[in-house]
Structure formats: structure tokens, C-alpha cells
Amino acid sequence: MLKSIENIGAIVISSLEQTGRTFNLLLIVFWELLQPPYRLYPIVRQMYFIGARSLTLIIVSGVTIGMVLGLQFYNILERFGAVDLLGAGVALSVIRELGPVMTSLMVVGRAGSSITAELGIMRITEQVDALECMAISPGKFLIAPKLVAGLLSVPLLTMVFDFVALFGGYFVGVYMFGLPEGSYMNGMTDAIEWVDVRLGLVKSVIFGLLITLICCARGFYMHLGKAGSQGAEGVSSVTTDAVVMSSIAVLFSDFLIGALI
């Protein structure tokens, strides 16, 4: 009984520690970003990895989600004789919610996990130590480009996702169910306001920062984790952890942002 209370306490303390470390890392990295020299190429490289390489996945999943939404909304709206609202329904749910969330989850799975694994392996093979010994800050050299790239890539990917998802919905509505083209497009343009696009944009920027931050921190600080989980096994467990944590962070902050804005 007492043991289990102790365990709960230990879990709470360690997760608080982890959160603290994560945000501390954010502060350190942003401070270091302000110090010269400024380098663009590492950021481009990370944007290629996080952003450009995710494009195919984002486009395929975006079209699919758009088509699924088109199908489901059509079935529901048909019962109320309101199929004119198909464009509005698809556009609102994609731009406000599904676009940012789905894109972030895709990026977590594709790029986030490998960021954690990469940093974790660099840690256990003393590459991080080697950087420090060369008087190069690992925060600036390794983490800052990833954070900036995540911050920029996720919104850009979200926009691509939104666009192709709207196209997917259009395809289902107009070509499968023979809705008049204008009805879908007008429903969309009338329902979506700039505030909706802005909300999606704000969400995707925050998600982009959150997921890269969590994934970086987990990999970078893997040596501070449980004593039993070092080495290759440690890397695999922090990677799983990072994916789970950043997915939860995305979903939870989605709710928070939705409630606040």
C-alpha cells in the first residue's frame, strides 16, 4: 500500500522533472539561437527532413481524410436535406481541427520518432559529449535547427494537408454524388472566415513547436532517464515515449487552444 503511494509519487516527480527539463531546453535553445553566428543551411536541411520528405504522406493522407469526410458528411446531411452544407462541413472540420491535428500526428510518427532516436543514439555513442568537447553547443548545433524547422514545416504541411483534403471532399461531393460544383465551393467560401484559417495556423505553429521540442528533449536527455534503460533498449523506449507524449500533447493543446481562442 505504502509502496504504491511511493511509486505514484516517484512517477509524479519524474514527470514534473521531465516537463521542467523540456521547457528549460526550449529557453536555452532560443537564447542560443539569438547568439551569432547565424546559420541557415542546418535549418534548411532539417526542413527537408521534417517537411519535404513528409509531403507524400501528407498529401495521400490529406486526400483520404477529405474523401472520408465528404462521404460521411454527405450521408448525414442528406438525411436533413442539407447537402448544400457539404463544402462548409468538410472545410470547417479540416481547417479548424483535422488539418493541424492529423498533420502533427503524421509528423510525430514520421519525423518525431526519428529525431528522438537520432539524438538518443548521439547521446549514447558520446557524439553529444564530443560536440561539447569541441566547444560547440549541442543545443544550438543539434536542437535549434530542428526546433525552427518543426515550427516552420508543420504549418506549411498543414496548409498542404488542408488544401488536398478540401480537394478530396470536392471530389466525393461533385464527382461521386453529383453535387453542383458551385454549391460545394460556395458553401466552403461562405462558411470559412479568415479567423478559421488563422486558428488552424496558430494551432499548427504551436503543435509544430511542441512535437519537435518533446521529441528533441526526450532523445537529448535520454541519459537522465531510468538507470535501467540505457543503450539501444533505452533509445527504443524513449522513442516510444516521445511519440506517445507528443501525440498526447497535440491532442490536449488542441483542446486548450480551441477553448481559449
Binding site: 534548411v44 472545410a91 514545416s153 472566415e193 479568415w194 484559417v197
Partner: peptide, 29 residues
């Protein structure tokens, strides 16, 4: 290196184009 920059550039342009489509055409700005 050039190839990588080119692809990243294409990605950024695509993203920006999709954004401006939404902001201007749909968002009815």
C-alpha cells in the same frame, strides 16, 4: 546539397501556395 535545397524550396512554395489559397479564396479575406 543543391538537390536538398531545391526540394525544400519546392516544399515551402507548395505550403505557401496552399496557405494563400485558403487565406484569400476561401477565407474571403
Amino acid at each position: 546539397r543543391l538537390n536538398l535545397q531545391l526540394l525544400t524550396g519546392i516544399f515551402v512554395m507548395l505550403g505557401l501556395a496552399a496557405f494563400s489559397y485558403q487565406a484569400v479564396t476561401i477565407g474571403g479575406g
